[in-house]
Design a binder for these strands. Structure first.
Lengths: 256, 256
DNA sequence: ATATCAATGTCGGAG
DNA sequence: CTCCGACGTTGATAT
């Protein structure tokens, strides 16, 4: 059993639970508890959750999650870097997690632990994702003609008094073009954002074109856009994952 | 054992795992799996996650979470309403979760299941929270003098061409006041938002005051605010939970 | 179903 | 450390 990478208990006593949770915290394990509990939180906001059965997760990095049987979001949580402590009070297990700045405290009082386990986790891989606004930006900078024939980018992240323009460029006639990128369906707020950027250029002699670039646009946004004399260019964010990147990197490292 | 509200297995075979997961899905249980797995996702974006040990949660409402040993957010997930299926392929367990609209698919391929359990969850309570923007709004509408002596709200959620104003009112001299509320430290984006709302009123004869109401403000936001002739009022969101609300409601229901 | 907006948003990157 | 903006944001509410 010396090799055991995890421990799992059913219906442990409070004393057993307390001991195992402490052990898990000391070993920087991922601790999983299914129990009937009450929860209180105080910090940026304040909350209270009456008794019920929930899943509690304490991660090696200090992240602390309490999940109900619905929704993707935890009902209560603490971020990475938080410090957890456990003790017994009136025969019940109390788990606290504290964050220093901002000062926040999460308190879990367990009536009954159904299962308790901890795991010494081996996981080195990071998620690889494609399809973000940044992927669109790269695509446009590499292949500007995707926007329209003759489009030439000048800068990315150009600062105006109303925030940063995603891409600034010129069309084939030399007129300035301000591109606002959205990786998802664009709403009126995206149009308003584009409109604000253009305020800095309203004295430009050649005239300036504002172009919203997104996979699609809502009805209201389209109306506002046209009323403001702006343009829409439909573009899907590229969803290409780099092929074999990690493999190559691994090879490089192991072959040195 | 007929009363058993949960099942928990250590190092189950693929066949056992598949059977138990199916059973859990059928019973609308909360399924918890700790396993070495690879993950792929395709939908609004696309992602790939190489092999590693992770915690997988399938909730009765269809929510599907994959948690690594760090961070609060799941590395991959599906929202409530998604449909999960499980099968064995090449001796490995494949779990898929599909969402119809937008079309999204999550695929988990498990190399080795360390623990597998499911729970028939009893949890009726909802979280009670205080400290939101809405709590600030209520406080101001109930006690307008908190903003300044003589302040009188006219409407909440007043619509402009640039979105909804949180609270519109008048000061003791009859000048219009536009309040923008933030329950957290306000940044430049909050000031820009307030600035936009005021555009609709720039022709007002009495002059209009724009007031950002938040517990604090960033340095840059303060500078922009002052340059634009706007004001800042420091106000903490009240963090008062209703006392004994549920108790009273329960009593009411049980006493009918 | 769609659109809008708050959130203990979380998270990453830049200054 | 703070600040700023993107996110497969999620979740709730109003239309």
């Amino acid at each position: 059993m010396a090799n055991m990478r995890f421990i799992s208990l059913e219906n442990p006593t409070s004393e057993e639970s307390c001991r195992i949770i402490k052990e898990g915290l000391r070993k920087k394990a991922m601790i999983i508890i299914f129990s009937c509990c009450k929860v209180r939180y105080y910090g940026r906001a304040k909350s209270r959750l009456g008794p019920g059965e929930r899943l509690i997760i304490i991660k090696p990095d200090g992240s602390f999650l309490i999940h109900q049987d619905r929704k993707v979001e935890p009902v209560n949580w603490q971020p990475p870097g938080s410090k957890a402590k456990v003790k017994i009070e009136d025969g019940k297990i109390l788990v606290e997690s504290i964050r220093r700045k901002p000062a926040e405290k999460l308190m879990v009082e367990m009536e009954k632990v159904h299962t308790l386990s901890y795991y010494l986790v081996k996981d080195v891989h990071e998620l690889e994702v494609a399809g973000h606004e940044e992927d669109m930006r790269r695509l446009i900078l590499e292949s500007p003609d995707i926007i329209e024939k003759g489009f030439r980018p000048i800068t990315r992240e150009y600062q105006t008094s109303n925030g940063f323009i995603d891409i600034l460029g010129k069309d084939e006639n030399g007129s300035l073009m301000v591109l606002e990128l959205k990786s998802r369906r664009a709403g009126v707020s995206a149009v308003r954002q584009l409109k604000r950027y253009l305020e800095d250029f309203k004295d430009d002699k050649h005239g300036v074109r504002g172009v919203l670039v997104a996979p699609s646009i809502t009805h209201d946004a389209r109306e506002l856009l046209e009323a403001e004399g702006l343009e829409f260019k439909s573009l899907e964010p590229p969803r290409e994952l780099k092929k074999g990147y990690k493999m190559t990197l691994d090879k490089f490292i192991s072959s040195r």
